[in-house]
Nucleic acid binder design. Structure first.
Lengths: 197, 197
DNA sequence: GCAAATTAATGATTTATTCAAG
DNA sequence: CTTGAATAAATCATTAATTTGC
């Protein structure tokens, strides 16, 4: 599978070039990957800052054409650049906002009383209300295993073998809050956690 | 953030009485809205990924019961979570398309082994025949120049012709990085350089 | 100063989702 | 329920920075 790049470097736009290409190394037009000039990066960044995130074909074409003025470039490079930049910006943002860890605890106070359901919810589900306010852990009425399976059909448990092992461990302990550093994987195997029977 | 959140916390306040001040701001954060733990979100997300969209009453009941193991939760929270998540996923998709001025994607990435050409993307021009059957008058872009403006809305256009001359010089010299300590403004005026047609 | 070795950035691919037609 | 379009996430791979020893 991991075949090494069939030589598509051949296509390497020899058109532009004259060994100009990029950057210091002097290694001229390597068939390798695009190496943007600072002007190109500047323009792309400006466009991104202006709100452009996933340019259309036409836009890519135009951008590419314009940027070719500053050096070798292909439209796919523009395409990829926006993909990567968008993804990595988001990623960066995500990392920053990972500190929000103090949920719960505060509001765990005394709001156990049943709140009259909002209209819509009540309309649809007036038949039953929440009775799961008991936080004493095991409270599950044995019902029908089958439904549980329906409910968590596939990998919803997102647990690999290792997780299952962890589940075994957690089995006895009352509270598995021993979760790892982050949100590694909640120790929860819903497939059979219901019915102790 | 905005989070419309009908203020059903008010109803709850009738019982709680702990300074139900309901947090002036209207955000109602303090009034005790559900604040899911990462484990809860994980499970819900997994369920969603597994294909669950609108859980039935029973399912909600069970999910809620399970998730109460990780923290405070009510069945209505589960109900709303699914509703919101579904809606926002859809919304997100829509928004991305529109927000990016992303009218029509003729841009596809040919992947896999199918294509003889190297594994990269290829452009496909749908060549949509302009049905100008805009029933509501303003369908979309009047193409042409306007699109260019859309494309470079802000300051990315702040350039003069002189810069272009500079490019000429660069042609021979390895790199014109010399100018402008950093990259003050890339010599580029995209506004009208495009459409020769 | 300079290169080999190592690390950090980032370009390019692959994989897994999502919604929506059919 | 299946499939197509279009990502976004995750991953791979290569180039640039940098460190290090000489």
């Amino acid at each position: 599978m991991e075949e090494g790049m069939s030589g598509f470097c051949i296509k390497a736009s020899s058109v532009r070039g004259t060994g100009t290409t990029s950057t210091t190394s002097g290694t001229g037009t390597k068939c390798g990957r695009w190496n943007p000039t600072s002007e190109q990066v500047k323009v792309l960044t400006d466009l991104f800052k202006s709100g452009l995130r996933t340019p259309s074909t036409d836009q890519i074409q135009k951008i590419s054409t314009q940027l070719s003025f500053y050096g070798k470039i292909e439209s796919k490079n523009v395409f990829y650049w926006f993909q990567n930049h968008k993804a990595r910006e988001r990623q960066k943002r995500r990392k920053v906002s990972i500190d929000d860890h103090d949920h719960h605890k505060d509001f765990v106070i005394l709001r156990e009383e049943r709140i009259s359901s909002p209209k819509r919810y009540a309309e649809i589900y007036h038949h039953h209300d929440d009775h799961n306010d008991h936080d004493d852990g095991q409270v599950l009425e044995p019902e029908r295993v089958i439904e549980t399976l329906q409910l968590f059909p596939l990998n919803s448990v997102g647990v690999s073998e290792s997780e299952k092992l962890r589940y075994e461990c957690k089995d006895t302990s009352a509270f598995p809050y021993t979760f790892e550093t982050e949100m590694n994987h909640p120790p929860l195997d819903l497939r059979l956690s219901f019915f102790t029977s």
